[in-house]
Design a protein around this nucleic acid. Structure first.
Lengths: 222, 222, 222, 222
DNA sequence: CATGAATGAGCGTTCATTCAT
DNA sequence: AATGAATGAACGCTCATTCAT
């Protein structure tokens, strides 16, 4: 609502610039590459302009400010990450076919890792900038909380009710999931992004397996 | 304060070797606070000077460059405190009393979390800067590898030999430990550091418990 | 203005090649004036900006560094104007009409003094800066040697062969010429440049006369 | 006289600091070396202090300002150059033994070149600084004029009266002498000071010979 | 006398942003 | 829509100078 609402602003922003010109396209691409490589603060607009083959003024004609350029880069990524994930992904994954939590978790992990793998650079930019921007943090996390956590909570509750999951509080299970998957993504894509190697399917299986060991309902046989 | 407090240690040490002046101390303290809060690049030397109540020139008289001020803050943390601590910690933890891997892991986690808790700000600076500086990264990782990973590898091997741990490759186990503990530290101290709340002992127990579920040797009874 | 005026030439040339803006011209003109007056090191960029009526940033947009501004002032003088001029001058002077060395010397002296007279300020800058910059020195002297000394050597040899000049080594004669003419230029344009008075023709005649007394072949009558 | 009088100030200054301490000695020596090497403006007081092995404060305790340090370096040189030259040197050279102007000129040249040779560095400093300081220029040149030029004028007049010198105006002869000898000193000691080689006696003879060719009374026999 | 920590004005330089064309 | 010259505030840094010890 208020102008302080970052996400609203972001959405309004992209709505304004519906039809991207060639130059805009070039600017966005170049900005993503350079922001990921050297960080937002260490990339000057003149550098972007030069690398994109446009005049510096052109950047400001389209994006107004450098901060706004950053948002224009992050926004589609976030839109795809958050609401889409919340709706499409869950709908897709939560059909009757998904027999158990492990299958769900594996499908979710694969889906999201594939997405981030395709948007490596923007993910890097996003994580790095979140560390420095209280504004981003304060706007994004409630949003995540609403859209993602609550849906996951439902799923967890569902499988807890089916007796598949250990009887820890749902919030605890969520935190564990978040820490482990988040830690994995952070170390692979942000902290040590040099390695060209793609994420191995077996690696994901391993992590899911590991997580399940921790949260699967222990058999009563003992 | 406890021996874990790095700043105390640094101050004590530099007092001995180079007689730090009052102003120097004020500068270091202020720099740590501001770097942690807003990041190195987003903190200007004039801001530090103003906040520390000194003239800007005084910073440069003592540290030469802003980069050097950062190093003066980080290097003691990395080059002096960590290795001796690593040794102390492992010596302390690896006595005969440590009956099993779970005890070791819990002791290690508590020890390190306590350490970082007392050096929150430097830890934040360190993580944030590593993301932007290949140089720092390249200086740090071999170092960590030598001092930490190899020691942990030994411990893991030891308990694997005793049949306590699952038969995964040691490197895999290490990665899981690193991801989970690192992810926890990152999310608690860097990503979402607002919360004043101290880390709960029970939370650590929970994580250790969780890890152990994943890497404990499964009983053959099945 | 005459073709001898270097600034006119520079301005004309840069206009052709890189379309100098009004502000750029103002900066160059002001820089030349101030560098000549107070020396390069004692002239601040903010002073130049203020005197030129531009923002300080404008200087750096066009010249990148203060050193570069100096070079932008000196290099055309050295790399473009001097050599072509050297060629023109020698071609012009060394026609058959030049009956003897004295005529040649007088013509050369007048030509060069006129040239420097129209480029007083750049000459001052050049001499002052050469005293402090080994780099400038090392770039300049080989250059002068090739373009000036070797040509003069030829002329001296030519007239020595015709029996007009004393039988001193050519290098000795050159040194005398250089010392006397150089000393004259230095004292008139650099050491004591206050005097607005233009160089008197009769003064040049006098010096040439004096030099010729020293290097003319003495009559064998004694 | 007035406080504006540089030479008075200089003299007053040295009178104050009669007995030099060891540290003062070291400071002066170091300053001479560094000023000559890198120029006055490019040498910082902290650099001098470090190289001299004293605290920076010590320089200011003794010399008050950096400018004053420069004067303390130049003053003894100038005192020796000007009044002494005017008195002692002329007295010594102008005895009856000096049969002709050529002998006088040769003796004067040798004497002064030897002096400058022994004070190469201070001479370099002096010439370079005169180029930038109107104050130095305005104070020194009248002084030179009074003490040196007038005495030389007398000598020239003396030998003109004896019919040894050409009938040019005395001022013209002086200028020629000044230009040639000055040009020689400048090029040897300031412009191209690299060469370690000492000034050759025969070289002086050559120059004196050359000058005499230009100003000797032409014999009427031809 | 000597020290060296502290100062603060001034430097060269960068850069996001504006605006006339 | 696109340009790029121009801006000026802010930056990291230097240095002659002061002063308490």
């Amino acid at each position: 609502m208020s102008k302080n609402n970052l996400l609203d602003a972001m959405i309004a922003q992209t709505k304004l610039s519906k039809k991207q010109t060639d130059k805009q396209q070039k600017i966005t691409e170049t900005a993503i590459k350079l922001f990921a490589e050297k960080g937002f603060a260490n990339t000057s607009t003149s550098e972007i302009a030069k690398a994109a083959g446009v005049a510096e003024g052109t950047i400001f004609r389209h994006y107004g400010t450098k901060d706004n350029l950053l948002l224009s880069v992050l926004l589609p990524f976030l839109k795809e990450s958050l609401p889409t994930m919340a709706e499409d992904v869950f709908n897709e994954l939560l059909t009757d076919q998904v027999a158990n939590f492990e299958d769900f978790l594996r499908a979710l992990a694969k889906n999201r890792i594939a997405f981030i793998n395709e948007n490596k650079e923007i993910f890097q930019i996003f994580v790095k900038e979140v560390l420095y921007s209280e504004e981003l943090k304060n706007e994004i996390f409630p949003y995540i909380s609403e859209n993602i956590f609550q849906r996951i909570a439902k799923v967890v509750d569902h499988f807890k009710a089916r007796g598949e999951l250990v009887d820890l509080p749902t919030i605890t299970i969520q935190r564990l999931l978040f820490t482990i998957i988040g830690g994995f993504l952070f170390s692979r894509f942000v902290l040590l992004p040099n390695q060209e190697e793609t994420i191995d399917e077996s690696e994901i299986d391993q992590i899911v397996q590991f997580i399940m060991d921790g949260i699967r309902k222990k058999s009563q046989s003992e």
